[in-house]
Design a protein around this nucleic acid. Structure first.
Length: 406
RNA sequence: GGGGAGGUACCGAAGCGGUCAAACGGGGCAGACUGUAAAUCUGUUGGCUUAGCCUUCACAGGUUCGAAUCCUGUCCUCCCCA
């Protein structure tokens, strides 16, 4: 019989960083029951296999899942392939194309690979919700839909907003929360994890479980991680994210760009610093933001790349950003000796700029230099001397080196 | 089914038939500055063989010397009524 830590210890870990646990006393009684009977709790997390690039925003919830694993509970990762296959044609902003089965399986794999940097893959059960959702008949779906009213649906914050903004809401979008809730019914989950924006969906699961005479799940919600811009939630589309797969130097640099108020929340939500030591980082973040932020950047980088690379990333940052030196490694372009290339073509053909016009603009704004000398003429032609090399800087921090072939 | 409003660049939003590659705001990018890739200030923001040219204002046609602006049809969205 598995031996779980005490309820107090478990709660301390579980509650770290949470926004809301609905309802908390049910969580406690579930934990008590679990400890008494030696039964792990079933912890559910759904993921959307459409965009498999995970960033630290996703990691907040995955880390919570990982904590449950460490406590000895059973975790289930649901690949939401069913809904992804249907696609979401209206969405608030963008049309999400329906994905093929193959793409979804592929995305699911990629997702799991990335998530495995955080989760213990051996302790993660992976399920696809099409397994139980696709066999549902139309009458099953209608029955499912009868459990919820329109009024309750448009209570949901984002529906309400879109409704008030006269933005379209497609009918099937109302079915999504029900599908997610059905997952909880099927899996008999004890706890469902999600971002605070998932509150409505999580509660639907609870509601549906009750209707099926199941023990309703506890909904545990994590805050939405604010992105590096300090205002919007971390998201790829806002380009304010730190990717789990980001290079160590990028991770370090991006972490340093966060506003000071975010230092502590990042410590709490994203690092392994023990609960009882967090308070001291909170104080440090206020008294010595510069060094504490470096500390944070280092911890984050270490978590995903190891100590050695984190140390390197720190040095790299000091060198390139603080001292504005050129980095140690950069892409190298080998050109024939004595060849001549127009600067515009050179930048553009190798994707250092998005278009010829951008390259031109960049030059006119003083954003391009060769070996430290600004290039101010878009017509500039680089003559590659035998054996020489040229370090070309494009914009703030894109560098590459041109070398002559022997 | 009936009536009304509307679809403009990455987003929001202006736009008298010519002076519109299209105001303004946000975002992005660049420069300066900085503990920082933050903040701030300045500039810039369709493409190209760049003093010029080409392609854009839902889509397809039409009127006109000339259309984002007028007309017709199609598609899409929102509101009110049923």
């Amino acid at each position: 019989m598995p031996d779980f830590p005490s309820i107090e210890e478990q709660l301390e870990v579980i509650e770290r960083g949470t926004v809301e646990i609905v309802p908390r006393d049910e969580l406690i009684s579930k934990l008590e029951y679990s400890k008494k009977t030696g039964t792990p709790l079933r912890v559910k997390l759904g993921c959307d296999p459409t965009r498999p690039d995970l960033h630290l925003g996703h990691s907040v919830i995955l880390r919570k899942m990982r904590q449950f694993q460490s406590l000895g509970h059973h975790t289930i990762l649901i690949i939401g392939d069913f809904t992804a296959m249907i696609g979401d044609p209206s969405g608030a902003n963008k049309t999400r194309p329906a994905l093929s089965k193959e793409e979804i399986v592929e995305n699911g794999k990629t997702y799991f690979e990335q998530a495995s940097k955080i989760l213990d893959p051996n302790k993660t059960e992976i399920v696809y919700n099409s397994d139980w959702l696709s066999p549902l008949s139309f009458s099953d779906v209608i029955r499912l839909a009868s459990h919820y009213t329109v009024a309750r649906m448009i209570e949901r914050d984002d529906f309400l907003k879109r409704y008030q903004n006269n933005d379209p809401i497609s009918l099937h979008e109302f079915l999504y929360p029900l599908a997610q809730g059905q997952d909880s019914v099927h899996l008999k989950s004890d706890i469902e994890l999600g971002g605070i924006d998932q509150k409505f969906n999580l509660l639907v699961g609870r509601h549906l479980q009750k209707e099926h005479d199941l023990s309703p799940q506890v909904c545990l919600m994590m805050p939405l991680l604010v992105g590096t811009d300090g205002s919007k939630k971390m998201s790829k589309s806002y380009d304010n994210y730190i990717g789990i797969d980001d290079k160590p130097e990028d991770m370090y640099g991006k972490a340093l760009s966060i506003p000071d108020e975010l230092i502590y929340p990042y410590f709490e939500l994203l690092t392994d610093i023990a609960v009882d030591q967090l308070q001291q980082f909170k104080t440090l973040a206020e008294t010595d933001p510069r060094n504490t932020k470096h500390e944070l950047a280092w911890h984050l980088t270490r978590l995903y790349h190891g100590t050695e690379k984190a140390d390197f990333a720190r040095k790299h940052f000091e060198k390139t950003v603080v001292k504005k030196d050129i980095p140690d490694d950069m892409p190298i372009l080998t050109l024939p000796a004595n060849s001549e290339s127009g600067i515009l073509a050179l930048l553009n053909d190798h994707n250092f700029t998005a278009s010829n016009s951008e390259a031109r603009r960049m030059i006119l704004q003083g954003g391009v230099s060769i070996n430290g000398d600004k290039v101010d003429d878009p017509q500039f032609v680089l003559k590659v001397e035998q054996g020489a090399s040229y370090i070309i800087k494009v914009g703030k921090r894109k560098y590459f080196k041109v070398e002559s072939s022997a």
